[in-house]
Write a protein that binds this DNA or RNA. Structure first.
Lengths: 189, 189
DNA sequence: ATTCTTCCATACGCTACCGTATGGAAGGCG
DNA sequence: CGCCTTCCATACGGTAGCGTATGGAAGAAT
């Protein structure tokens, strides 16, 4: 038959996409080169052009994959128990501003740099941001805050964590942990 | 003589640097290509390689120029009258988060993307950030806040404005202006 | 066993870009 | 005038990457 394993293909496509995301985190969008990626995967570009129409096809797949992952993450958090909104806000701040998730934050930055120049990327980032802001807003509203305040806190929260990852806060201050806690309180309390 | 006008050269170097900064804002670091830049300036790269040793030489000059400009800006703000710290904080938030200064913010983002991969760029960004954070901290301390709180507010302020420029807040909410004001109050008050 | 599909390697032409080498115009200066 | 310095154009060789064409191996289907 023509399609004995409709998963085998997807698996290999997924390998290319994963490799592209790795490079995106390391080198940015312009680091994603077909032949470079092929070398990293220990194949040649002959394989690439079987799985993908061209480089743009890969990039679109990268966008889709990233978007799905982020949306899924947000939905998972949304399904958490109600009544736990405050610790959940702290958890979000902690996850995004900590140095684990380093690769995730690098991808976030690269995506936004990408979105500056590419309409498709811009649409994806906007969708993900909207979902996150909505999630945050609902959390604050569940704690009884008025709509404007809830929306504002949500925006402040995400802008802060992304902005923090932009700043080479290598050694701004020794009490970085205390500062982060003060800020988290200021945003969430 | 050998040096009748030691400014003529600098002026032309400055033109190349300015063009490079324009491209940096539009296309990011990888958009800065010698021949592309030459075409934009309506000359050929023969001119470029007279003024600069190579592409890296230009990039270093771009870094220096940007750093000097930012440091100068901060020092200018620092020399403002004392007793005006609160409105000054609002002014900083306003300048950075507004849609004027668009090009400036694009360069900020590109610089930070650059800093991820280049040690020299990372050093420059870190220096500029340190100066800004210090400036903000002093402002809050002048209003009687304890050191930890002042440092934290300063960090929150700059992380917020940079993070905001990362988010395609194209149409998150119609009341964006009110939200920005709420956030500015939360950071500065 | 033969054929067919799947997946990848190799080879090719093409473009963009880098850095160098060389020459030439244009103006100050002897 | 001839000369020298400054600034830029042109031409060249080299590398990296894109996309295509073609063939080949290996397993599945018949």
């Amino acid at each position: 038959m023509a399609k004995p394993e409709p998963n085998r293909q997807q698996l290999d496509r997924a390998a290319w996409i994963k490799g592209a995301l790795d490079i995106l985190a390391e080198k940015g969008l312009d680091g994603i080169r077909v032949e470079v990626l092929a070398k990293r995967l220990k194949v040649t570009k002959g394989s690439f052009y079987w799985h993908f129409k061209d480089r743009r096809d890969l990039l679109d797949a990268v966008l889709d994959t990233w978007k799905d992952g982020r949306i899924r993450d947000i939905q998972k958090q949304t399904r958490a128990l109600p009544g736990e909104e405050l610790p959940r806000a702290y958890h979000v701040i902690d996850v995004y501003s900590a140095n684990r998730n380093r690769k995730g934050m690098l991808i976030e930055i690269a995506m936004r740099d990408w979105a500056r120049r590419d309409a498709a990327a811009a649409a994806v980032v906007e969708e993900v941001d909207a979902a996150r802001l909505e999630f945050g807003r609902k959390g604050f509203e569940a704690r009884g805050m008025p709509p404007l305040e809830a929306s504002s806190r949500s925006l402040l929260l995400y802008a802060y964590v992304f902005g923090l990852s932009l700043m080479s806060c290598g050694k701004f201050d020794a009490d970085m942990d205390e500062m982060k806690r003060w800020i988290a309180d200021r945003i969430a309390r």
